[in-house]
Design a binder for these strands. Sequence first.
DNA 1: CCTAAATGTTAGGCAGCCTAATATCAATGT
DNA 2: ACATTGATATTAGGCTGCCTAACATTTAGG
Lengths: 153, 153
Amino acid sequence: MNDLELADLAQRYRTTLRLAVYVSRRLDGAAGLSTTALSILNMVAGEGLRMGVIAENLGVRVPSATEQVGRLERAGLVERRADPSDARAVVIRRTSGGDQAAEDANRRRTARMVEAFSGLAPEELEALRAALPAMDKINERLHTDTNTKEHIA
Amino acid sequence: MNDLELADLAQRYRTTLRLAVYVSRRLDGAAGLSTTALSILNMVAGEGLRMGVIAENLGVRVPSATEQVGRLERAGLVERRADPSDARAVVIRRTSGGDQAAEDANRRRTARMVEAFSGLAPEELEALRAALPAMDKINERLHTDTNTKEHIA
DNA sequence: CCTAAATGTTAGGCAGCCTAATATCAATGT
DNA sequence: ACATTGATATTAGGCTGCCTAACATTTAGG
């Protein structure tokens, strides 16, 4: 693939993405929890995670994670615990209410996604699945890219 | 593909998307214009478009488009003109400064995308390209979906 | 005509991200 | 032992971008 084709692909990818994000956000909101909130709930299932790890998994800065977790805590879905091995850190865990809410939201959200996905032909689904690793790779590359530049700047 | 596999695919898709959007946004911002701003500039090249059409193309409500266009106008990159065929409507067109800015931003942004994309294997690129139509289809389905529900609610 | 629909704008509000500044605690070197 | 440096999280303040509701203007239709 030459540079011109690559540029075109990049362009179309971007366009598709922009829409996909907002669509997905609206869809999640209708399911009761925001995309971010649900992501956090899902990742702190079980043992729980430290704030910094949550931020990193989300791909955002720590204060943004603090804010999101604060909202979830006020809603009674997660709780902060002291980390026994490091007094600076906190461990965020789900409450039982959080387990409940996450299950509900996951179920509803998945149902709607499945509904949307089931309108696609088998080849299209296959194409989608095949593309995910590439997308993840791009995310990683661009992410470290921009983060690096930010540190420099 | 059964429902379980479909649900899993939907889940992974969502996760990948969430990251992709923020990554892409940050990347665009570094290129001087936001994703939205550049999208608008690109779509009003030439004859220009009416506000409502811009909103629809972006997948947002009209007031959101008004806001974005207002920013671009204040930056001197687009201008509002009266629509000769309808006194209610406005036509948004690029200024020459807008042409310049769009070209620059497109070039820089594309360069970085190409850089990121060129790290992928040919099969991965092919997979990505093959997946775009499916993603667009999903966007469409989910989009009309949520819009409908919003009208009902 | 006169009412109903279409087109934009303005105002107000919310989510989600950022940086900068601050407080605590950990780790390290002397 | 202790002072410095680094790590972890919070708070404060600010920005983008989306939304709905309320409004003005113009078009279209009965």
